[in-house]
Every structure is written in C-alpha cells, then in structure tokens.
C-alpha cells in the first residue's frame, strides 16, 4: 500500500491540487444544501422587488429616464456577491473551529494554495448565485442579448474573488463570529450602500461622490451597470458610475491583488 517514497510532488502541482480540492468541496457542499440555493435566489428577488417598487414612486434619476427597478438591478446583483462572500467568510471561521482546515495545513500544499482554493470556491458560488439572479435581467429592462457578457463576467469574477479574499483575511485575523458580524454591519454593508447600488451620487453632495470614488465596490457596481447596458450607458447615467469600464476593471484588479495578498499574509502568520 506504500507509495514510492522517493517521489516528491512538485510544489506547483501540490498547490494546484490543494486549491482544486478545496474548490470542489465548496461546490459539493453548496449543491448538497438546496435551502442555501433557495435562499440565495429568493432573498435578492424579494429585496429587489420590495425595495425597488417602494422607491420607484419617489426616485427620479437626474437627467435620465431610468426607472428605479432598472437602476437598482445592478446593485442587487452586487448584493448577491456581497452576501455570498459574507457566507464564505463565516464558513472559514466555522471550518477553523471544527478543525477541518488542520489536515489541509499539514498536507504538502502551501498556505497560499489554501487561500486561493477557498477564494475560488467562494467566488464560484457567488457567481453561480449571481447568474441565477441575472436571469431576471429582462424583467428589469435589460434584454439578455444586449448584455456585454465578457465585461459582466470579468467584473463579477473580480468582485467576488476580491471580496472572498477580504473575507478570508478578516476571518483568519478575527476568528470570532460575533466580531465578524460587527465588521460586516459596519463595513461591508455600508460599502455596498454608498457604492451607487441604491442611489446615484448627486451634484449637491460632493462628499458622496468622493466616497463613491474611494469605494472598491462602486467600481464593481459601475462595471456591471455598464455591461448590462451592453457597454454603453444611456445619457445621464454616467454620473452614477465612478469610472469607465476599463479603468474600473483595473481598479478591481488592483483591489483583488491587495486583498489576496492580505489573506495570504494572514494565513502564513498563524496556524
């Protein structure tokens, strides 16, 4: 039964394996819990329909004829991503408490591979849930055929991966569910609210516009918005996004690199 003791796995191969194993585990566990799938889909639909119709009567997009349900839709897509990343973070904390990550840490893969595997798993689940919700795009006035899919996918993938990495770094550093909930309420949700997801910045509030430009989530919401309109925003909406598609993707790429580095550093520091 013994394997050849002289054979040494190449580091890259070992790392790829660890990342793949963790990714696959996340997907298997998700698909095995239908209630999670239902919640992942039901919640944003309710959110979009209820808040969307409530606000529709009072919302006026300055200089553009866009209804609130349409304006809000890209924001809810990002909300799906944000919530999925929160869920992934909670599962990292749970896994550490249950000891599941110990055998991964003593296996020959590196800690960076562990981080990448977990983030890929979390991002995949986030994308899966976002894709399901996006099937409703026609109801919000975005014909599926008109959507710029590569741009949409890039924005969502970068957003999901970076938020998963941010969550991992926080989870590893905190290791405490209560503290994590506090952070999520005071950091993640406000970041989403001021990202332009719920309302656009107005010229009367220059501070909000400044905050929007500093919030990495607003670049994700903005790019999703641009992609849903097929790459070209209708007149008047350009004030709602912090930058063009290319610049936004670059910002998201930078944010991803930053959060991934933070997660790997956190994971290397501590068992």
């Amino acid at each position: 039964m013994r394997r050849d003791e002289g054979c040494e796995p190449s580091p890259l191969a070992a790392d790829l394996t660890v990342a793949t194993v963790l990714w696959r585990r996340d997907v298997i566990r998700f698909l095995r819990q239908p209630s999670r799938l239902l919640g992942a889909l039901g919640q944003p639909i309710l959110f979009w329909a209820i808040i969307g119709s409530g606000m529709a009567a009072t919302f006026r997009m300055p200089g553009a004829s866009v209804g609130y349900l349409q304006y809000f839709f890209p924001g809810v897509v990002l909300m799906v991503i944000v919530f999925a990343s929160i869920f992934a973070t909670v599962s990292v904390i749970e896994d550490r408490h249950a000891g599941f990550l110990l055998p991964v840490l003593v296996a020959p893969g590196s800690r960076a591979a562990l981080v990448v595997g977990r983030c890929l798993g979390a991002a995949t689940l986030a994308l899966l849930q976002a894709a399901l919700f996006l099937l409703l795009a026609p109801a919000a006035g975005f014909p599926l055929r008109a959507i710029d899919l590569p741009l949409l996918l890039s924005a969502l993938a970068l957003g999901a991966f970076s938020l998963a990495a941010l969550g991992f770094a926080v989870a590893w550093w905190l290791d405490n569910l209560q503290a994590f909930h506090a952070i999520q309420m005071t950091l993640l949700l406000p970041l989403w609210v001021v990202s332009g997801a719920m309302f656009p910045p107005s010229s009367r509030l220059p501070a909000f516009a400044a905050v929007l430009r500093c919030d990495p989530l607003s670049y994700a919401v903005g790019t999703v918005r641009i992609a849903l309109y097929g790459g070209r925003l209708p007149p008047g909406l350009s004030a709602a996004v912090p930058a063009g598609a290319g610049a936004s993707l670059a910002v998201l790429g930078g944010f991803t690199a930053l959060t991934l580095t933070a997660a790997i550093v956190a994971c290397r520091r501590r068992a």
Partner: peptide, 11 residues
C-alpha cells in the same frame, strides 16, 4: 513539503 508528504497526522 517532502517531510509533510511522508507524515500521516491524527489530531
């Protein structure tokens, strides 16, 4: 890594 690949660990 070589050492780790030779170990079986029971926590």
């Amino acid at each position: 890594r070589t050492l780790r690949s030779r170990l079986g660990v029971v926590f």
